[in-house]
Design a protein around this nucleic acid. Sequence first.
DNA 1: CCGAATCCAATAAGATACTG
DNA 2: CAGTATCTTATTGGATTCGG
Lengths: 112, 112
Amino acid sequence: MEPGVDCTPDCPVRLSADILSGKWTTLIIRELLAGTRRYSQLQYALLGVSPKILAARLRMLQSEGLVTRKVYPTVPPKTEYTLTDLGREAEQVIRAMADFGDLLAARADIAS
Amino acid sequence: MEPGVDCTPDCPVRLSADILSGKWTTLIIRELLAGTRRYSQLQYALLGVSPKILAARLRMLQSEGLVTRKVYPTVPPKTEYTLTDLGREAEQVIRAMADFGDLLAARADIAS
DNA sequence: CCGAATCCAATAAGATACTG
DNA sequence: CAGTATCTTATTGGATTCGG
């Protein structure tokens, strides 16, 4: 891990952070790592997310090439979201975050 | 990786995201992974960060137990920031983000 | 069912000036 | 040097309503 001299202007960590930061982004990816999901399934899984935010994050992830969106013009309509190959590469990040989160939780337990 | 039913309310990914998200946070950690740094060194390395933001993020990281702050009451004053053991555990996340960022950069190259 | 539209609150970030 | 104070802007998130 090298000093920040190569961290400007477009260090990989920053590129990654620009996409993955945001309250719900990593949680959406986490959910999609388990498999293709419909809009309503995501909304249910991510308890508390508003439709606006969910749609916005999904659109962003799609435009960044991490997610594909498939619409079935049935009645009622159905939309499926699936990770692309690139999106699945984010699994390593999610995993590392989960591991780190476990440490944070352990620390919180001690504090109580 | 399991479905989101266990992603509420305090899944590890969320705990992790709550701390690491933010435009500069991971970059600060990235810099500190290279070793202890002074305030001015961080400000220089993170080109474009304002003193207010840098101080705020450092205080947050300190309160979360990822960073220690050591003040030398010399003239001129000197302050050193160092990762704690917990803070160093974030290296896996930063590494994964760096790897993923490389993929993003490669994709961007193709697009051009 | 899948969102888009609207409106509003909260927060993060940035620029600048200044102090112990 | 290492920040704080102040002000302003930009971004994000949230609640609700409504339409295809």
